[in-house]
Each structure stands twice: as structure tokens, then as C-alpha cells.
Design a protein around this nucleic acid. Structure first.
Lengths: 345, 345
DNA sequence: TTGAAAGCGTTACCAT
DNA sequence: ATGGTAACGCTTTCAA
């Protein structure tokens, strides 16, 4: 069933039928009703490809998911696109995902832009050495970054957490509890987000006049076993920390395992505070959650990002106007933190 | 830059240029080279929407991701589509993902089919009461199920793990080690995969002449806290299990926490064997992995599924011919299992 | 080996 | 308020 057949049945022109279906005002209420009814009865729906070609809009947004063999798949990504997908559905947009080897990423962006596959792109996980935004500008395709680029904050639209402040607050919180040696299990510090988090950690320590001890800091993929490994190393050292700050729930779970396997109690002997991205299969919820955390929903970030990008695409005028959205993280008190014990270690 | 402009520059017809670019044999080698060179120099790439309309093929596959507010987002899904996405890229296909509220799922399939948004669909997580395959047949769109439907195994193409056998083997393995009371932490038993796994567990016990104790079995979302909760309940009961069989690594991590918090040692006092979907951020690898497991990569399943569906789409003739692919799970010995201790509890 | 022109199923401009 | 027709950018049939 296509437009031609439908309009034949109705004894109307394709023009009128199209207008009726698309809500144009110049169609009589009566005709519109007739058209809508018949379309429903016959199960007509416009062919998407024809519509795209005719309008020049694909009504779809692209996400590129780089996957190198030795790098983990980020659960954050999934949560983010689930949020974004919700918004897309609301606005009638589709979501296209390209899974690609890391080194092909630029080629993929070129192809997407050249072949006009989508109306806009969301760029994930900006790195310290970021170039994708320059490429996409050159390719002249609307895009939004999930995460700022240091030094280029005003050059793109972005949605980001205030990572620095969140981690400064978390560290400050531990300092207030009397902790002075705080282990820091961070994500890969090639990533923008991890760089900012480290700054926050260091800022708080500096302000409190604490010494910065590099041996207390670790940077790695955010997996549970690595969390255990690093936390164990620290706990077994000659001058172990009394608290841990971790960049993800998985690292926190790993750290907890390490603490317990050392015969210590979390919250009592050793405190743990973690960043919580609100990953749905790693719940840390309830009245008093298991982990004290700085919490910011990445699913929500996805929703906001999608909204901003779509709005940007619709208001074409905003050609060089960038929209940025900073999300603050809440500090949620859980059961994994407590005052520092004196004279341990 | 479009085909018209490109062919003008070349003083060739659009026809010839199109043929040259698409590898048709009737173009002279010389002409083809000229066309290819110029296309490269000018950065020409065919507009995807025009191509789709002209050919009637979208070169894309759809995945529907139902997300109800109170249900977790499945990490399995992400791993699967990452695998599938790799195959799509190889074949030049795109991946379209629709995130949708659970109750809208049928409407989404209808729209995808009516509007010809994709060439095929992969259906995830079949349930006990499954109807989507009937709908998709009616809608006359190629599709493949990730997971069989009991009673309709011959009616669709599918890729699945031999869940029953895998869980029977795992249970058998524990029985061989002398365990008689085995706690079973399963996924949601509305799901096909969980039903099969339970059958495997029960089969093995039955064959060994063990009593089936319903209090040893639990079914829930596969999260770490729920694993802890159920395992703790069992360990504190009057007749606790000496081993656990779990349906996911997250449940296994939860169970491990419970075991340790009871002052017991995993592998020594209590054994744990788990199904391992090879989720990249929950690694359980190495010479002797942390958890003894029955392992089957869901990323690989995604790749195979994509291959089968694409092949099916290309060979249109196979209209009523279904391809099925059963994956066996390996039993990998790790550090979390050992002989049952006598006279415990 | 090359080209002209129809066709894919819409939307949108220009008439009426 | 409705209709005819061009246009979107390709592929494909038919001719030459």
C-alpha cells in the first residue's frame, strides 16, 4: 500500500492525501477525516526511504561505538543510548549505531556525512587528544559531544557532568571524616572525564594541605577485578589508605572485595565512596544505598543530549550557536563510609 | 557532490558512472579507473536515501530494545549488538536500534515493517509467552530470534545456546564433586533461556537421584545485590547448600560476597559455578579464571546471528527455509569450585 | 561499451 | 480546498 494506491481509493490526489496525513491546515476537516480513516483501515504508512529522499531529512541520529579488541565495552555507553533512544522515540527519530574498529573511526564519520546517513551525530568519550570534533565541523554535520573537550569548550555543543567538582566534593567528604590517605581508583586517564576527576581529587587534597601521594592513585579500565587488584596492592603497602574513591561502581565492588579479603570492614575500617552512573544492572539504590556515592544518571545525560541535538537540528539558524549542559552530581550518603580510625596501618 | 555533477565532470552519463562505481562488468577498465579516481578526488559517495529508494533495500537491520521502568537494562544485549554490529560493518549493513516502552513493542514492529525501515529484524529475549514471531511473519519481514521458542523451534530462524545441556553439565560437575545441595540462582523465569536452564539443573539432579528442593531455587533479575541476598538467605537456612549454580557473572559475584560475609571460603567451603556470557567489562578469563563457568560468548552469538539473517535476506529464495544455529557452552575450570565438605551445616 | 529515460514513493511548488 | 507536476538522487531497463 503506497500513496498512489491510497489516493486512488479515495478519489483524491496524492498531494491532498499527503497534506491531510501530514497535518497541513489547508485540508478540509471532512476530507482529512476520510483520509485518516482510510489510511488506518488499509494500514498505510509512508515509505521512510521515499520520505527521506523527498524531504532531505533522515530523521535519525548516529552513534559510533569504537571497539578495539583489547578494550572493554563500556556499559556507560549502553545506558546512555538507552536514554537517548527514549528521546528519539518521542521526537520520531531513529537511532543508528555503527560498531567499528578503533582505527576506522574517522572513515566511518566521513562515510556517514558524505552519504547523508543521519541528520546528526553524538560523539562519545572524548579523549585527551581529541580530533573528531574538528573532522565533524569540516564535514559540516550537526553533532554533540558527550563530555567536554578541554580547551574547546566553546566550540561544540556538549552534555557533561561536573566531574571535577563532584570528585572534589567526594574527596572533601572523606577528608571531613578524618581520612588523610585516600586511594583513588580512576578510569583510563587518556579520557577527558578521568582527567577532570583526578583534578578534583587533587584539588581537595591540596586545599586541605594534604600531601599528594602518587602511589595512592591508579588509572585503568573500570572493571571489578582491576579494582580488587589495585585496592589489594594499596592495602598491603606499608602505609595503606583508610579510604577509597573510585570512578565506577564496578571498581567499588572490586575494592570492597579487597577490603573484606583483608579482614577489614567497609564503612568501619575502610571507607569507600564511588561515582555512580546509575547503571541499571548495578543498582546502588534505596534509603541508604550500599555505597556512599556521587551520583549522576548517564541515562538522563543521554536524554538531554538527544533533546539538545534534535533541537539544534530543527532550528537550523543556530548554526554556530552551541548549547552546553552541565549536570551536577549529588552526594548520596550510603553505608560504605565512616570516620577514619586513628593509628591504623 | 552527487551523481549528476560527477558524471558532468567526467563527460559520461550517470548510467555509466553508476555502473563503474558499482562494479558492473560492462564498463571498460579505462573508464572505470577514470570514474573511480574522480569520485575519490571529489569525495563523491552515493546518497544513501536515494540508493535505498531506487533499490528497495535499506541495507540495515533493526533491533528493538524494550525498556520498562522497573526492569533492568540487559548487559547481554549490548554485548550481542556489539558482535552483530561487527558483522553488519563487514557486509555494509547499518544497525538501527529502537528503544521502546514494553507495551509499545508491537506497534514498533508494525511501523518498522509498514514503513520499510529495515530489511530484517533481530528479536531478543524470547519469553515463555512469545508472540512477536507470529506478528513478524504476518508482517512478512525477515527476522531471526536470539533464542529458541519452545514449541516453535522449526518456525523461525534462531541462534541459541544449548542452555539445558550446559546447565545439566554444570550441575553434574558439582554432583561429581560430591555436592548434594546446590543453590540455583536463575534469571527471570518468564524468559525462555531461564526455563531451559532450570530444566538442565533439575535433569541432572533427577538423574543423580537427588531430591529437588524448591527452596534452593531462586529466580530474579540478574543483579549483584540480588545474588547476595538470595545466597545469604540460603546460607543462613537450617540446611544450607554447599554449592551455587548461577545464571550470570553478576549473580556469581553477589553469591561470592554472601559466602565470604558468612566467613566461608569460595572453592573451599562453598563452590560456585556460573554461566559466563563473556561480558567484556566482567572479565573472567586467564589460565584459571576466577569462577568455574559454562562459557558461551554472546558477542559471538551476535555475529553469527547477523550473518545468518543477512544471508537469509540476500537469498530471498529461502523464503520458508529457516536456519538455526545452536552454540554449545564450554565448561571451564576455575578457582571457585572444589570437592564438597562432609558434615557441614 | 555507453546513454536516455523510466521508476522508486514521497514532498512541495505552482496553479486553479 | 484540491490537483498536476517537478524534484529528491539514485538504479535499471531498453536502445543503440
Amino acid at each position: 500500500m503506497n500513496l498512489k494506491e491510497l489516493s486512488n481509493r479515495l478519489n483524491l490526489s496524492q498531494t491532498t492525501v499527503s497534506r491531510a496525513l501530514n497535518g497541513y491546515p489547508e485540508v478540509s476537516a471532512k476530507t482529512r477525516q476520510r483520509v485518516v480513516d482510510m489510511a488506518r483501515d488499509l494500514g498505510y504508512a509512508p515509505n521512510q526511504q521515499a520520505q527521506r529522499l523527498a524531504t532531505g531529512k533522515t530523521m535519525s541520529i548516529g552513534h559510533v561505538l569504537p571497539r578495539s579488541p583489547n578494550e572493554m565495552l563500556n556499559p556507560i555507553f549502553m545506558e546512555f543510548i538507552a536514554g537517548a533512544g527514549l528521546t528519539y522515540a518521542q521526537y520520531g527519530y531513529d537511532m543508528m549505531i555503527s560498531v567499528v574498529a578503533n582505527d576506522d573511526e574517522e572513515a566511518i564519520y566521513r562515510e556517514i556525512a558524505n552519504r547523508k546517513k543521519v541528520d546528526g551525530i553524538i560523539v562519545h568519550a572524548p579523549r585527551r587528544q581529541e580530533t573528531r570534533h574538528k573532522l565533524l565541523k569540516k564535514l559540516n554535520i550537526p553533532f554533540l559531544m558527550h563530555g567536554r573537550i578541554t580547551g574547546a569548550e566553546a566550540e561544540t555543543s556538549w552534555v557533561d557532568i561536573n566531574n571535577r567538582r563532584a570528585f572534589e566534593r567526594a574527596t572533601q567528604f572523606l577528608l571531613d571524616l578524618g581520612h588523610r590517605r585516600i586511594g583513588f581508583l580512576n578510569g583510563n586517564e587518556e579520557m577527558e572525564f578521568a582527567i577532570r576527576r583526578k583534578e578534583g581529587y587533587i584539588n581537595a587534597l591540596t586545599k586541605a594541605g594534604c600531601e599528594i601521594d602518587p602511589t595512592l592513585m591508579h588509572s585503568s579500565e573500570m572493571t571489578e577485578p582491576l579494582g580488587t587488584e589495585f585496592a589489594l596492592n594499596l592495602l598491603r603497602s606499608s602505609n595503606p589508605p583508610t579510604a577509597f574513591l573510585t570512578s565506577s561502581i564496578t571498581l567499588a565492588i572490586g575494592a570492597e572485595t579487597a577490603v573484606k579479603s583483608n579482614g577489614l570492614q567497609v564503612g568501619n575500617d575502610v571507607s569507600i565512596i564511588t561515582h555512580d552512573d546509575v547503571i541499571s544492572f548495578l543498582p546502588n539504590s534505596g534509603e541508604s544505598p550500599h555505597f556512599t556515592c556521587i551520583r549522576s544518571s548517564v541515562g538522563e545525560a543521554g536524554q538531554r543530549a538527544a533533546e539538545i541535538l534534535i533541537t539544534d537540528i530543527i532550528d537550523q539558524e543556530s548554526n554556530d550557536r552551541h548549547v552546553t549542559h552541565m549536570m551536577e552530581a549529588d552526594l548520596i550518603l550510603g553505608q560504605s563510609t565512616g570516620p577514619a580510625l586513628q593509628n591504623r596501618g
